[in-house]
């Protein structure tokens, strides 16, 4: 059964890792729906958050192939109910549309969006939320002519208390009886 999965991939922060990771997906013809990459909360460790539609079986194989990469520390796979996730959307609308009635202002209120910047020419609105919510606002705003629309990749946080990777690293440290040092 195809379903949505969010993968968090923790890796060393080396050049070329994004390429290594994405080729693992392309080799299996798994389309990346959304991708976000940044430094993780743990120093020196990079985190990729990737959203895909696939089957549990495919994802388990993919996880194996990813973890096999030398510079990848650990991969966690989540279904949507196991995480809190958000995306950020920015909308640019003509300021004239804003002035010609109060519908846009009403939309901003009901959708919990925020006005970021107003110039005589255009206004930038920001909204965080799930894709369906930011998309819905887009459809509504587009009636007034959205000049530009951009949505970020997903960021996600687990519903369990601590960072799972921290646990994993702790175990590694104990297993190897070695201090956590990278050679270079």
């Amino acid at each position: 059964m195809q379903q949505e999965f969010t993968l968090t991939i923790f890796s060393e922060n080396h050049v070329g890792l994004l390429n290594q990771i994405t080729t693992a997906f392309t080799r299996r013809s798994i389309n990346i729906e959304s991708l976000n990459t940044s430094e993780s909360a743990l120093e020196g460790i990079h985190k990729f958050t990737i959203v895909v539609y696939s089957t549990r079986e495919q994802i388990e194989k993919l996880k194996g192939q990813l973890e096999k990469k030398i510079d990848v520390l650990k991969v966690f796979v989540f279904t949507s109910d196991e995480i809190i996730h958000q995306e950020l959307a920015l909308y640019k609308v003509p300021t004239a549309a804003l002035l010609s009635g109060n519908e846009i202002e009403q939309l901003v209120r009901t959708y919990g969006a925020r006005i970021m910047e107003v110039t005589p020419d255009y206004t930038v609105i920001q909204k965080t939320g799930h894709k369906s919510e930011t998309q819905e606002l887009f459809v509504k705003l587009d009636k007034y002519g959205v000049l530009q629309f951009i949505r970020s990749g997903r960021v996600a946080i687990t519903k369990v208390r601590e960072e799972l990777l921290e646990k994993y690293l702790k175990k590694l440290r104990i297993d190897n009886k070695i201090k956590d040092i990278e050679t270079f």
Binding site: S11, E12, I70, D71, V72, L73, L169, L172, D175, N176, I178, D180, I181, E182, T183
Partner: peptide, 13 residues
């Protein structure tokens, strides 16, 4: 000589 890389587990438990 190298005998440890944090992100690499040559022999799984």
């Amino acid at each position: 000589k190298n005998n440890y890389i944090r992100s690499y587990t040559p022999i799984p438990a």
